[in-house]
Simulated assay, not measured.
Amino acid sequence: MEVFHAHFTEYAYPMHVHDAWTLLIVDDGAVRYDLDRHEHGTPLGTVTLLPPHVPHNGSPATPDGFRKRVVYLDTSRLGSDLIGRAVDTPGLRDPVLRLRVGQLHGALAHPGDELEAESRLSLVGERLCEHLRRTATAEHRPDPVLARSLRELLDARVVDGVSLEEAARLLHAHPAHLVRAFSGAYGIAPHQYLMSRRVGRARRLLLDGLAPGEAASAAGFYDQAHLTRHFKKLVGVTPGRYRRSSR
């Protein structure tokens, strides 16, 4: 629903509630807060999940304040039946989850990377549910047929793209299972595969003489900056330099 990054040194939140789930990581400092009349904190490396409709506050727990990143999730991601469990254990010590939440923030910062953001959000939501339902991570069996079906869909939609939600609906699979099946079969995440196909298309267009801005649009990128970021990551040079060197 919303992303919020902030650095507070003295400000203290009064008691308040949210309509959404609050998924919080603290990068510097620490926060102390009361949730349902119980005091909690944010030890380094933890992930904090505050449930909707439950009063809480928040204030710096260190002299230099705190720097935080927050994602607000609606109840379609986490059901209201999990609120009680979240009240009992809002602090989650899970390095993998924290890493994935950080990666989600990174993906959300870049327009055009919606498939990556959807994929990362799906895996984050799955792991949060596992914590709240006290279930162990199930063994994920290979599903090459599903993986191939997703690859064919991505190949057919290189320029137009496809959301994870639409792909899951078309292929009758849970989004998180779709991501795991593809990554397990090909050793690359769906969003990485799509971007590599787009970069390949952009390379051919640049060799044909198109300017980087034109190639970006024709290859399915959000804008030229979006193309440049992924092109340089995969090719090692900017699109403009690649185009000039090919003459």
Rank of each mutant, 00 (worst) to 15 (best):
S217E: 15
V235F: 09
A225M: 02
P63I: 10
R244I: 03
H172A: 14
A6K: 11
A107G: 11
V47L: 13
S76V: 13
G112E: 13
G91M: 06
R247W: 15
H16C: 01
A173K: 00
F4P: 02
A30G: 11
R85C: 01
F231M: 03
D155I: 11
E2H: 06
H40V: 01
H140I: 13
P14L: 12
R37D: 13
M15L: 15
H177R: 09
F182Q: 07
A225N: 04
S163L: 10
S59R: 15
K68R: 14
V96E: 14
V159I: 15
R243P: 09
P190Q: 01
G79V: 09
D143S: 06
G91H: 01
P52I: 11
E118V: 08
R134Y: 10
A189E: 14
P90W: 00
E116W: 09
P190N: 03
H5F: 13
G184Q: 01
R100V: 03
A167C: 07
L171S: 10
A168F: 03
G91V: 05
A6H: 12
G84D: 07
V179N: 00
G65A: 08
D34R: 09
G29I: 03
P144V: 01
Y186F: 15
I25V: 13
L49V: 11
V124I: 14
G220T: 04
P43I: 07
G65Y: 01
L164I: 05
R198Q: 12
A138I: 00
H230D: 11
Y222V: 09
P14D: 12
R243G: 06
G41K: 00
Y11C: 03
H40T: 04
V87W: 00
V124S: 06
G125D: 13
F231L: 03
A181V: 06
G41T: 14
S217W: 01
